[in-house]
Amino acid sequence: MRWDVLETHLDEAAFLFTQWDRALESSTRGLHGLEKVEQRLQAHLDALAATGPRGAARLLRPALGRDEPEYVRAACVALLRAGAQAHVDAVLKTFSEGEPASRMEAWRALQLEWRDDAQKQLPRTREADRLEANGMTASEVSLPRGLMRGERLAWRTCQQQADGRDAVGRLARLMLAVGGDDKDLARLTELLQVPELRADVLWALGFSGRPAAAEACVPWMREASLAGLAAEAFCSIVGLKLEGALVGQRVDRDEALVPLEEDLARDLRPKEEDALVLPNPDAVEAWWAKARKDFEPAGRYLAGQSFGPLDLCEALMTLPMRRRPPLALELSIRSQGRCAVEVRAWAHVQREQLRAIQRLDTRLLVQPFAASMRL
């Protein structure tokens, strides 16, 4: 064996997994862009999976103990793909006994390679570990399940937790945006007055599709720290493309003076929000003053078009990766779990799921969630 070549495959797979993870959160790349990264990643993973017992013993299984999470995931996927029971056992042991970061990577590998089988075959006593490794808590999982089952209690919980500062609150606000009535939307826009919730509320409003939500985003395009997020939400509803005179000036991080203590404590790592196009508030407001009349107040819109029952599926085919998870969750809720798209699965798996959904006569509802509650 050419061990230098195999080590290069592992290095490249680890690197491309970081690129693949970034693509999953991209504000510009859609499913096609994810596939471009994934094709290269899959080639390296297949090469590692074909190394046989010697390659697994010398290269892959030792990589399960590395401190770099991306190497752990690459090794886990290659071992699972190779298929030998000893390899599978090594991955399961990493998931059960490894450090928290390694457990998370092992679980991601199991999700990617086993998918539904991972949920069925792992012991039920490991439920807490599985949730933790997936970055979730039990309460975050229970709300969507309750809504899928048509439980009024789940919907009331969303309404009651809308001002929560935790992950449940964030999920509740999103649910009010996509499934609430006029009163729920009004409650959501009122929460824009709470500084620590403002960014999260703007994010949720962008999925409501309601002209009133677009209207609520307009003033916040003048707030430097929120301008990109507010514009993204606004444009996702009305379909405006920020280009030419509609694009604003970007203020460099170094030009904004802040107290030294705050500057030292700030996370300087780039976030996906940093890549959002900034608006020219005056130009956007002028455009909206003319375009507002073309939007029916009671309607729901996606990229400026009236939002119909099956448009969720089309949106999942074309929208940037960053905006797909909330819509996939809405699709699952409105179809009572019959239409599921795993937005963090391999791209080819997602395309298969979307093609299957397009063949179904789902007749999905677009009415508020409360109208379909049965229990």
Rank of each mutant, 00 (worst) to 15 (best):
L354G: 08
S236R: 15
E352T: 09
L242T: 04
P368C: 04
A340W: 03
L226C: 08
A23F: 06
A370F: 04
D182C: 09
A371W: 11
V284Y: 04
R40F: 11
E352H: 07
M1R: 11
R173N: 09
A345K: 03
R126S: 11
R323P: 06
R187G: 06
G33F: 05
Q193K: 10
Q121P: 03
S96W: 11
P281R: 01
W3Q: 05
L41S: 03
Q121R: 13
L48C: 05
M104F: 05
L327I: 09
R115C: 13
R115Y: 10
R351L: 11
S102C: 04
G169R: 03
T125D: 13
E255S: 13
R250Q: 09
E68L: 12
W155R: 04
Q39A: 11
E285N: 05
A298E: 15
Q350G: 00
Q39C: 07
D252R: 09
Q193T: 08
G83H: 06
D129W: 04
L364W: 08
E342R: 14
L276V: 00
K271I: 12
L191I: 00
A78D: 00
R54V: 15
D267I: 13
V91H: 00
A74G: 07
A233I: 03
S372A: 15
G33D: 09
L191M: 09
E296W: 10
D263Q: 14
W155G: 01
